[in-house]
Simulated assay, not measured.
Amino acid sequence: MSRIDESRPFHPVRIAVLAVSDTRGLSEDKSGDLLVQRLTDAGHVLAARNILRDERDAIADQLRRWCADPGIDVILTTGGTGLTGRDVTIEAHRDVYEKEIEAFGTVFTIISMQKIGTSAVQSRATGGVSNGTYLFALPGSSGACRDAWDEILRFQLDSRHLPCNFVEIMPRLDEHLRRK
Score class of each variant (00 low, 15 high):
11 H>K: 11
11 H>L: 10
12 P>D: 05
12 P>N: 06
13 V>P: 04
14 R>L: 04
14 R>K: 14
14 R>Q: 04
15 I>C: 15
15 I>T: 13
15 I>S: 13
16 A>K: 08
16 A>P: 14
17 V>A: 15
17 V>L: 15
17 V>H: 13
17 V>M: 13
17 V>E: 14
17 V>G: 15
18 L>P: 08
18 L>N: 05
19 A>C: 14
19 A>E: 07
19 A>Q: 08
20 V>N: 08
20 V>G: 10
20 V>R: 03
20 V>A: 08
21 S>H: 01
21 S>N: 03
21 S>K: 01
21 S>Q: 03
21 S>M: 05
22 D>N: 15
22 D>G: 14
22 D>V: 15
23 T>Q: 01
23 T>L: 01
23 T>F: 00
23 T>A: 06
23 T>G: 02
24 R>V: 04
24 R>G: 02
24 R>C: 04
24 R>T: 02
25 G>S: 10
25 G>I: 01
25 G>T: 11
26 L>E: 13
26 L>Q: 11
27 S>H: 11
28 E>M: 02
28 E>A: 06
28 E>I: 01
29 D>S: 08
30 K>C: 06
30 K>I: 01
30 K>E: 13
30 K>W: 00
30 K>T: 07
31 S>I: 00
31 S>C: 06
31 S>H: 02
32 G>K: 01
33 D>H: 06
33 D>F: 04
33 D>S: 13
33 D>Q: 11
34 L>H: 10
34 L>E: 07
34 L>G: 08
34 L>S: 11
34 L>W: 03
34 L>N: 06
34 L>C: 12
36 V>L: 09
36 V>M: 10
37 Q>Y: 01
37 Q>A: 14
37 Q>P: 02
37 Q>G: 14
38 R>F: 05
38 R>C: 14
39 L>T: 15
39 L>D: 10
39 L>M: 15
39 L>F: 11
39 L>S: 14
40 T>M: 13
40 T>H: 08
40 T>V: 15
40 T>I: 13
40 T>D: 10
41 D>P: 00
41 D>A: 15
41 D>Q: 15
42 A>Y: 01
42 A>R: 03
42 A>F: 02
42 A>I: 11
43 G>L: 08
43 G>C: 06
44 H>R: 06
44 H>F: 02
45 V>G: 02
45 V>S: 04
45 V>I: 14
45 V>T: 14
45 V>M: 02
45 V>Q: 06
46 L>V: 10
46 L>S: 09
46 L>R: 12
46 L>E: 14
46 L>P: 04
46 L>K: 12
46 L>H: 07
46 L>M: 11
47 A>V: 09
48 A>I: 04
48 A>S: 13
48 A>M: 04
49 R>F: 05
50 N>S: 15
50 N>R: 12
51 I>R: 00
51 I>S: 00
51 I>C: 00
51 I>L: 09
51 I>D: 00
